[in-house]
Amino acid sequence: MDIFLQQLANGLTIGSMFALVALGYTMVYGVMKLINFAHGDMVAASAFVGLTIYTQVMGQATSLLAVITIFLLSAVCMACVGVILERVAYRPLRKAPRLSAVVSALGASLVIQNGIMLIWGPRMRIFPELVPQVYWDLGGVVISLIQVIILTLSLVLMVSLYLFVEKTRMGAAIRASSIDQDAARLMGINVNSIIALIFIIGSSLGAVGGLFIGLYYRGITFNMGWQYGLYAFIAAILGGIGNIPGAMLGGMLLGLFNAFIAGYVSSTWADAFTFILLILILIVRPTGILGERVAEKV
């Protein structure tokens, strides 16, 4: 039972990181019907930006205020990068066939990944211990402070995003743009600024995810975006791509699934089982767990 609960805690921690990153994929897909393959590399970039802010801007301060500032500044930086990315790589292709935009996304991914390598170098960079190493032993199950922070902050962000999209006028505009861009435009919604907003939200959530990866695992490499991007992409599909609660659910499920497979079967097989799960979901429910069947627009 101890093992089960411990794996549950492990799974929820990595699951919430996957979920944060998956939100970036799913929101962009919801509005633009585009898989933003560069998102994973944006997440990696945010970890490096965060590290640079810590060493250069904050002068290696480790107070709570410093940590909050690092999170905010990184999110702002990545939001700007996200908007620029959309302006440069995707907006010119808005009317082009969908394949062109996907190729452009793959290209952007390579540019960002190699950009990180050129700026910060190919070596593994190491995050400082910004969160004190505090552990609680709850009857055999050990929970660390960083796990609690990751889980709580992710849930808060996800719930506020959900409320924002469902309850505000701006959220209604996002939902309208995702259903039909032309009709939304006729209703006086500026779809271009909605898309920019989507990139701002997606990229800053991704930045938080990237910083969590850095704080939790401590080692960051320029090519790690691919791995986390892939997992988050699977999480988004699992929950139903384009669906915001779906991405959260998908991320959590994927994290748990991965932890249990690695714990009870073998860590060797964790990836293989993850992909088998993806295939099964796509066969049984092609639209994902929470995805709705949408009539194909012809």
Binding site: D2, I3, Q6, Q7, N10, I14, I213, Y217, G219, T221, M224, Q227, N258, A259, F260, A262, G263, S266, S267, T268, A270, D271
Partner: peptide, 20 residues
């Protein structure tokens, strides 16, 4: 005798089994 996947970063599932 356990095996981990290099670069996968998340070794806690394997370590949890080892702990038992």
């Amino acid at each position: 005798r356990d095996k981990i996947k290099a670069d996968s970063q998340n070794f806690t599932p394997v370590l949890t089994n080892i702990k038992s």
